[in-house]
């Protein structure tokens, strides 16, 4: 079966600085793949390249077998089939929660506004935000904003959900509510590629954990193997630092 996402030899430079140096990665349908690695290892850049927010400098990104990194491919059409959630939520501050969530269905997918609103209310209800549909983003807590951002990314039923360190900007007591939501999504069989520093969480939900260092995928496998008995010395060193910081 063709994987939902296939990344081949992905390269991305910022000037002389090579952030991704030939990454290969597959994400199969219903699979949850977690990217771990130090800050600056290229996790976010990989996600942004997959979402075509960054141009790739070499290599290919296939979505359902189609090379979307080809400049002849329709990038907007490809993005419509993915959803991405950012570290800083990036909700639109001048729109209410409901408008944020229904924007893409209404404007991009041509869904009838009433239908889009109905569906958005359903989704927001499921994440416990039914009473905040009329609020503006700055009236919500960080955890609530991030849950809205996840709902916004889900509103157009993406084939692939990309989560870029979505709990890094949250206060510790708000991390739980967001991770619970992601756990539910994983249980529903969503295809997810996420970057995170929450190792405990990765252990629970990941089908596969990938360790990135200096723009290269050094190690990949089931969580108990990569997080429990890592083979590569760099992975071992990284995990030792995480454990020393009390994060695993």
């Amino acid at each position: 079966m063709t994987p939902v996402l296939r990344v081949r030899n992905l390269v991305r430079h910022y000037g002389a600085n090579a952030v991704l140096r030939g990454v290969d990665l597959d994400v199969a349908e219903h699979e949850v793949v977690v990217l771990i690695g130090a800050s600056g290892s290229g996790k976010s850049t990989l996600l942004r390249c997959v979402n075509l927010l960054e141009e790739v400098d070499d290599g290919q990104v296939f979505l359902d077998g189609v090379d979307v990194s080809d400049p002849r491919a329709d990038a907007d059409a490809a993005r419509r089939r993915m959803g991405i959630v950012f570290q800083a939520y990036n909700l639109f501050p001048h729109m209410t929660v409901l408008d944020n969530v229904t924007l893409a269905p209404r404007v991009v997918h041509g869904v009838d506004p009433a239908v889009a609103r109905e569906r958005a209310r359903e989704l927001l209800d499921r994440v416990g935000l039914a009473d905040r549909t009329g609020a503006y983003p700055d009236q919500l807590s960080g955890g609530q904003q991030q849950r809205v951002a996840i709902v916004r990314a889900l509103a157009h039923e993406p084939r692939l959900l990309l989560l870029d360190e979505i709990t890094s900007a949250l206060d510790p007591e708000l991390v739980g509510e967001v991770l619970t939501l992601v756990r539910d999504l994983a249980a529903q069989g969503r295809t997810i590629l996420m970057a995170t520093h929450e190792m405990g969480f990765a252990k629970q939900v990941a089908d596969r954990v990938c360790f990135l260092a200096d723009g290269v995928l050094l190690e990949s496998g089931p969580p108990e193997q990569v997080l429990g008995a890592p083979e590569h010395p760099r992975t071992q060193a990284f995990l030792r630092r995480i454990i020393a910081a009390g994060r695993l």
Binding site: A77, R79, G83, N90, H94
Partner: peptide, 23 residues
């Protein structure tokens, strides 16, 4: 990041400008 968020939802450059950036 506002532009990135708008484009990630599949909005075109013109749509992102009109609906998200300009307001």
């Amino acid at each position: 990041s506002q532009r990135a968020a708008a484009r990630s939802l599949g909005l075109t450059h013109a749509q992102a400008m009109r609906i998200v950036i300009l307001p």
